[in-house]
Design a protein around this nucleic acid. Structure first.
Length: 325
DNA sequence: ATGGTTTTTACTGCGTC
DNA sequence: GACGCGGTAAAAACCAT
């Protein structure tokens, strides 16, 4: 708290100084000692007074294009650095590249043995580079999975399975054409369902950076491609969370489970959205226990329409009365 | 692509506070 | 009059084929 404030203050100060020094640099082109002309000596990185030799600025960096060479003599002189770094490439262009010309450093052609060797080196270098890029990819994805998982309150083992799923997707080359975030989100969604602690598509969607369409599409895709076994979510697994979000008692939770239990295996359940069923069960249970919640409140936390709640809870209560009779 | 099923949207009427 | 609730029709989304 106070730490960050202090650093902020320091930064502001530094910025201030910088702007100031920039101004003086621009305005005063004469030596502060003898008022002689200042000369910029880029080779040594100094600004020197021509008259008295006073060094005004030291350790400047010459950003000039040292890598450019216009003839072979200059190439020899200046070839000690590479191109400037760029963020456009995943590794900022810092990884090794082996030229395609079969020439040595002096421009002489290589012997056939040397040529073969270079070809092998190119192959291996390329392999390592792509492996590195996959590592980076994975790192980012895992970070994303972690972030979303904790936002959704999902336990450690779900993150584990999510990252396993993601690794498999990566190994099977499912990533090209899909975003890292999309696949991460889909992996997490699948993992949560497999672990029996499902989160609804809407909930996952809230914490993800990708839109719903992409999420469902990539989810379907990876489930199919990886042959993931993911059975429909059990409505009961949503109940405790929704109940607590609504601030209802355990009694309501128990009744909700009972309603869902008695409806299990009937056509009332099959094909219906588990979230809708859970919401309806909770609403019905809240009526039975005289703990008032409105359909609107339930629909809010479950992110399901009130209409669906109405339809479902009638069916649930019908099953209950029929079973009793 | 298509058709069947489920869910959502939008609108309406009724009763209560 | 606002709110909760029920119902309906049509649109949209979803899913298997």
């Amino acid at each position: 708290m106070s730490e960050s404030q202090r650093t902020n203050g320091r930064e502001r100060e530094r910025e201030h100084e910088e702007t100031e020094s920039k101004q003086t640099e621009e305005e005063i082109e004469v030596c502060p000692e003898c008022s002689g002309n200042l000369v910029n000596d880029a080779e040594h990185g100094e600004t020197v007074c021509q008259e008295c030799g006073l060094v005004v600025e030291e350790d400047e960096i010459d950003p000039g294009p040292e890598w450019r060479a216009f003839d072979s003599r200059e190439q020899d002189q200046k070839s000690r650095v590479g191109a400037p770094t760029t963020n456009m490439m995943h590794d900022k262009g810092l990884s090794t590249n082996i030229g395609w010309q079969n020439k040595d450093a002096y421009g002489n052609s290589l012997s056939s043995r040397q040529r073969e060797k270079m070809q092998r080196l190119r192959t291996w270098n390329e392999r390592f580079r792509t492996r590195d890029s996959k590592e980076r990819n994975l790192k980012q994805a895992l970070g994303e999975i972690d972030r979303m998982a904790s936002a959704l309150g999902l336990p450690e083992n779900v993150r584990e399975t999510a990252s396993v799923i993601y690794r498999r997707a990566l190994e099977e080359d499912l990533l090209p054409g899909r975003s890292i975030e999309g696949v991460s989100t889909a992996s997490l969604y699948a993992a949560a369902r497999q672990a029996g602690t499902p989160r609804s598509l809407d909930e996952v969607n809230h914490v993800s950076r990708v839109d719903r369409m992409e999420l469902t599409r990539t989810y379907r895709y990876i489930v199919q491609e990886l042959n993931l076994e993911v059975q429909p979510a059990n409505p009961k697994s949503y109940v405790p969370r929704f109940v607590s979000e609504l601030g209802l008692s355990e009694e309501v939770e128990r009744r909700s489970r009972e309603l869902l239990d008695s409806a299990e295996g009937t056509e009332v359940i099959s094909g219906k959205s588990p979230v809708g069923l859970a919401a309806a069960a909770i609403y019905a249970a809240s009526l039975l226990t005289n703990e008032k919640v409105t359909q609107n409140e339930v629909s809010d936390v479950a992110e399901i329409s009130e209409v669906t709640i109405r339809n479902r809870y009638h069916e649930l209560l019908d099953v209950e009365t029929n079973a009793a009779a």
